[in-house]
């Protein structure tokens, strides 16, 4: 199982912050595609950054069983 975290607008579209994928291994890019298929209104996930286990990760990075993958829309702190 891979845990997925969604924030801000992405969280609102899906209606929850956390979802789970049953995959054992999947790339960050594939997760994006999978979620967008599952939630058609989630197109903004394309412009979000991704983080695997709290470090920014590119689309080619593989997530494995037990990993935590977060999608981070453009930030606006400060």
């Amino acid at each position: 199982m891979i845990r997925i975290l969604l924030f801000a607008e992405l969280e609102e579209v899906v209606g929850k912050r956390e979802i789970e994928l049953s995959d054992e291994e999947i790339s960050v890019g594939e997760i994006r595609e999978k979620l967008e298929k599952q939630y058609p209104d989630l197109h903004k996930i394309r412009s979000a950054m991704a983080a695997v286990n709290e470090e920014y990760a590119e689309n080619t990075v593989l997530a494995h069983e037990g990993d935590l993958v977060a999608f981070i829309p453009p930030v606006s702190g400060g």
Partner: peptide, 13 residues
Amino acid sequence: IERIKEIVPIWKK
């Protein structure tokens, strides 16, 4: 402060 606006996962509504 400039870096916070680039890399820190915080959002305001």
